[in-house]
Structures are given as C-alpha cells and as structure tokens.
C-alpha cells in the first residue's frame, strides 16, 4: 500500500513537471522542470530496484545532458517576452478536454472483455536483476552493441565540433 502511494506520487510529479516543461515560456524554466522530471523518474527506478539505471540517470542525464542544455540556453541568451506560459486558458481547456476524452476511450478499451492484454506474472515480483547480472549480460551477449556505442559517441563528438565551429573562409 505504501509502495503504491509512493509510486503514484512520483508518477504524478513526473507528469506535472513534464507538462511544466512544455508550458513554460522561458527555456530556463523548462530545463529546470525537466530536471524535476528526470529526478523523479530516477526515484521510480530506485523503487523498481534498478539501482544502476537510477545512478546513470542522475550522472549522465542530470549531470551531463541538462547542464549542457543550461549552458546552451545561457549562451544563446533567448529573449522571452510575454507571460510565464505559452498557452492561453482556452488552449489549456481544450487540451484538458482532449486528454479526458482520450483517457476515457483508453479506459473503456482497457476494461472491455476480449481486449488482447497478456496477463502479467502473478504474485509480488522478486528482486530485480542485480547490477552484476546486468554487467555480465552487457559484456558478453551485448558486447558488439557496447563497442558500437563508442563509435557512435566518437562520431557524435566529431560531428558536434564540426557543426558548432565558426567557419572562417566561407565563400
């Protein structure tokens, strides 16, 4: 019971902060709202027993990617006139109505008899895979993908430098 309450609290915070990301007019506020989303998602990972994923979420996403976003927003110095939100009250009302309609349809489809939904394994789940098993799996069966990832990162780094540099002798 406690676990359920905690999960839905975290999930609600994730959804609300994700809505805040697309509603804020100032990009700095959007980045900060995404910070909350990613941190709360790391909390859900912790609750699911995926400790390694939560660790990498905090280090890679929040520590590297979001700081990069903040730097770029700072460099670009985006001017944001107007109010705090990009949506008018009419747009918000229409979005809420559309969300309720789609959610109601999904709910009825979910509850309908004969909906092709495979049963989840019964009973409380045991402890998830430990980080040792994940590492063994990653470095044996998925070793080729792991090595290809390094090529991808190298290509992305070179490409980012090439795109972002200042061209001196443009015709």
């Amino acid at each position: 019971m406690m676990e359920t309450i905690l999960f839905w609290t975290l999930a609600g915070m994730a959804v609300l902060s994700a809505l805040a990301v697309i509603a804020f007019r100032n990009p700095v506020n959007s980045v900060m709202a995404l910070f909350v989303t990613l941190l709360v998602t790391a909390g859900i990972y912790l609750q699911m027993g995926a400790y390694g994923i939560a660790l990498f979420q905090v280090i890679v996403y929040i520590g590297a990617v979001l700081v990069l976003f903040l730097f770029v927003v700072m460099i670009l110095d985006l001017k944001t006139p107007g109010g705090w939100s990009v949506f008018s009250s009419r747009t918000l009302a229409m979005g809420t109505a559309g969300f309720l309609l789609a959610g109601g349809g999904a709910w009825f489809a979910w509850r309908a008899p004969g909906f092709p939904w495979t049963e989840a394994p019964a009973g409380a789940p045991g402890p998830g895979p430990a980080i040792r098993e994940i590492a063994l799996d990653l470095f044996t069966r998925h070793l080729l993908v792991f090595e290809l990832t390094s090529v991808l990162l190298l290509a992305a780094a070179v490409g980012a430098v090439l795109i972002g540099r200042k061209e001196r002798n443009r015709p």
């Binding site: 990617v65 770029v72 780094a157």
Partner: peptide, 15 residues
Amino acid sequence: MTVAAAEAAVGLAIV
C-alpha cells in the same frame, strides 16, 4: 541513454 546524450550534443550544436 547513450544515444540520448549523443543526440543532445549534436542537436544543441545545430541549434
């Protein structure tokens, strides 16, 4: 996560 980090770097360079 790796692909997302690479995508963010290239995307921000494009921006």
